[in-house]
Design a protein around this nucleic acid. Structure first.
Lengths: 248, 248
DNA sequence: CCCAGCTCTCAGGCGCCTCTGAGAAAGGGC
DNA sequence: GCCCTTTCTCAGAGGCGCCTGAGAGCTGGG
């Protein structure tokens, strides 16, 4: 079976082979980081630096999804999309765009089932969106044929689509950052995650601050999730934090 | 079968051949120490002193992993990483970085499956991180095809990911130094380890103190692991300490 | 334009971790 | 049994990691 580098079972194609993703961004550093994060999900990834290279790579790779920067040196991201759809109408696209960019045009294009994230983004967000896209497009399935249980750790349950979290059936309200932090923890239960690791995944790639914010948000999460209950979030001094079901 | 110099079965490639590691550091002493420690694991190791040499060596060696100093005389560690991934997308990277250096820059670098340790580090830590990286990347397997049992000595069990230690099912809380010391002992069961050996492996390479700390930490470990039970940690007078399962 | 929620910085403080030194205990040679 | 060496134990100082509260900057909605 295909697995992610963290040992979790990977999201795969319906036939069980690795999903193929093409990353298109002219910033080599950003492309590198994205490529690494998607490979970490157990997917087969290729990168391209401009529209022409992207189209060439797409013909060769036949990707299931494309992560596409809207601003490319040689051609518009939308042009790339149109050309892509000519040969591969099934492909999903996740746009990367600047916050103040023309969101109207994005909105129009994403009507077709595609999605977008605004720069600067966190890797957790990109991966989550991509997983959502692929799942909705029917291009991916969970490795287990049984129904997808979603994210469940002990009596803690997260519904990613509804953005709802409950513990012991009780609804818990979370801010966006709290939600992403908890998602990352829940995707890696019983595993100690260092503050640097958390920072890399949950905060934007251009975040300049110190790892202290992680402590802060962990304390917020504890107040909401562990308040008055048996704690699930544990500090491992000198190492990081770990989320565990109460009995374990 | 491939074995470590200590006689332990080595972590190998899936095909059973020796794992290949490239060490890149401009400090020859440090590179030497690292090279020795990794060879001791039964791996095939080469060293390079700068980025250009690293890239050349990587093309020749085709390493599974690279231990890479972030500060190199000729080029940035991140640049080396990107160039490496151009030709060898599967390679794992373990960064070495100064603690007080701009850790922000490391943020994002480790976004893929990669990892880093801060100087000064202990050899146990470097080896453990590297083993973790290779294991998660699916590049390594235990020599026995049966599933990896992790670290088990008698009724003493260590889960490195969760950073949990149990004896006879009972959870034992350990400080970071205690944890690393025990890991070293458990990786070398039934083998007498001298205080000097332990100091070299578990404490940072720049530690100035004397071997007395080893005695002290052994006594801490005994209180937590052997307390009220049949002892597993034994003193071999004039030679060192040895960890043995109770019946053996 | 004001208000509310979110995010992040700063600084204080507590508690654990690490290491030192001195003295007690144990082991081995004679 | 005596003495020397090695090892163990204890107490404490210092440092650092982590947690928390207060508040400032920002943003989006009313």
């Amino acid at each position: 079976m295909n697995t992610t580098r963290s040992g979790r079972p990977a999201l795969t194609r319906p036939d069980g082979t690795a999903l193929r993703v093409l990353v298109v961004d002219d910033d080599p550093d950003l492309a590198e980081v994205l490529t690494g994060a998607l490979r970490y999900e157990g997917w087969q990834v290729r990168a391209a630096g401009d529209g022409a290279a992207a189209l060439a790579a797409a013909r060769e790779l036949a990707p299931d999804a494309v992560v596409l920067d809207v601003m490319l040196p040689d051609m518009d991201g939308f042009t790339v999309l149109r050309r892509l759809h000519e040969t591969q109408p099934e492909v999903c696209v996740l746009f990367l765009t600047a916050r103040d960019a023309v969101e109207d045009r994005i909105a129009g294009l994403t009507a077709g089932g595609d999605d977008y994230v605004t720069k600067p983004f966190s890797l957790e967000e990109v991966v989550a969106r991509l997983r959502g896209l692929l799942r909705r497009a029917g291009m991916a399935r969970r490795p287990e044929p049984e129904e997808d249980p979603g994210l469940v750790v002990g009596d803690l349950v997260m519904d990613e689509d509804a953005r709802e979290v409950t513990r012991a059936g009780e609804l818990i309200e979370l801010s966006p950052t709290e939600f992403e932090l908890l998602r990352f923890l829940m995707r890696n239960p019983r595993r100690v995650l260092s503050k640097a690791q958390i920072l890399d995944r949950v905060w934007s790639y251009d975040f300049g601050g110190r790892a202290h914010v992680v402590e802060l948000y962990i304390s917020y999460l504890r107040k909401k999730i562990d308040a008055g209950r048996e704690p699930m979030i544990h500090t491992v001094r000198g190492a990081g934090y770990v989320l565990k079901p109460v009995a374990g």
